[in-house]
């Protein structure tokens, strides 16, 4: 290194393989783009969509009832059981009910909080409030769920006992930050001048909210609801800890893998929340909220 005159000009004029490669990439934009995107696309294609496909394929197999070994023959029996047995319908509807309730509760709590954070608090207070909202996320999920178990137990501070209501309360608490943050981000982008203009034109609080704030914040609300809805739909631990004797769709999946050793049926059950989420996303798309995210 020290002997050769290694000036920048000399390096530039040299046709090293590396430079040839970068020249090639410069001329061929398509190759450049595909190389750049190949890693994320591989992730999306193999790790994510591939896993979903594997899930669906596994749902078409069956398991030996004694040893739990997979028998790789295509059968619709799992889906037939899933659709003809009433208990699975009940559990699916209950799970959707819990997810909707959690989403609505979180929305009702999060919206005013996010509004206050974005529009009423000083910039300094805003930072602290964001930190305060994020703090619960630093603690372990289990610690928080068990904390609620202790609070809800008959000798606890609240003493309301366990059950579906307890599950909804716990999940609402757990997922609240996921609702506040998107709404806060959405409302922060809302120019104050629009609120003032609404006021100047004679709109009171409710009318301003209905015609200005809500339509502009709606995509953010939808983003938050996707988080709370999907997280609640997939949860099975909180309900095990505070749910008393109730079970949700995640528990059926867990029991079929953890207890029955029936992976194919668990996969069949697991497609239910996937389908529910796809329907939800399709419905959201119709409202146009996804375009404005």
């Amino acid at each position: 290194m020290n002997a050769a005159p290694n000036t920048p000009a000399a390096a530039l004029s040299r046709r090293t393989p590396r430079r040839r490669l970068s020249a090639f990439l410069h001329r061929h934009a398509g190759v450049r783009l595909s190389l750049l995107l190949s890693a994320p696309m591989l992730w999306l294609g193999i790790a994510y969509l591939g896993a979903l496909a594997a899930l669906f394929a596994a749902a078409l197999w069956r398991a030996d009832t004694f040893t739990g070994d997979l028998i790789r023959e295509v059968t619709w029996a799992n889906f037939q059981d899933l659709f003809t047995t009433e208990v699975y319908r009940t559990i699916a509807l209950r799970s959707v009910g819990v997810a909707v309730a959690v989403t609505l509760i979180d929305l009702v709590i999060a919206f005013p909080m996010a509004f206050a954070m974005a529009k009423l608090a000083s910039p300094r207070a805003q930072r602290w409030l964001v930190i305060a909202v994020l703090t619960p996320l630093w603690a372990s999920y289990l610690v928080k769920a068990y904390a609620w178990r202790v609070m809800l137990s008959s000798e606890g501070v609240l003493g309301w006992g366990y059950g579906l209501t307890a599950t909804i309360i716990t999940l609402s608490y757990l997922w609240l930050p996921y609702m506040i943050l998107p709404i806060y981000a959405g409302l922060e982008r809302l120019p104050n001048s629009l609120l003032e203009a609404a006021g100047d034109l004679g709109a009171r609080g409710w009318r301003t909210f209905r015609t200005v704030v809500w339509p502009l914040a709606f995509p953010a609300v939808v983003a938050g609801s996707i988080f709370t809805f999907s997280l609640s739909l997939g949860d099975y631990i909180a309900v095990k800890i505070v749910g008393g004797r109730s079970q949700l769709i995640g528990n059926v999946v867990y029991d079929n893998i953890g207890a029955a050793n029936n992976l194919p049926f668990a996969a069949a059950v697991a497609t239910v929340p996937v389908v529910i989420m796809l329907v939800y996303l399709a419905a959201v798309r119709r409202t146009g909220a996804l375009e404005n995210l």
Partner: peptide, 13 residues
């Protein structure tokens, strides 16, 4: 899934 509900041939067990 709709196909599955009527196309099955018997219980998995």
């Amino acid at each position: 899934a709709a196909c599955g509900s009527d196309a099955g041939s018997g219980p998995s067990g």
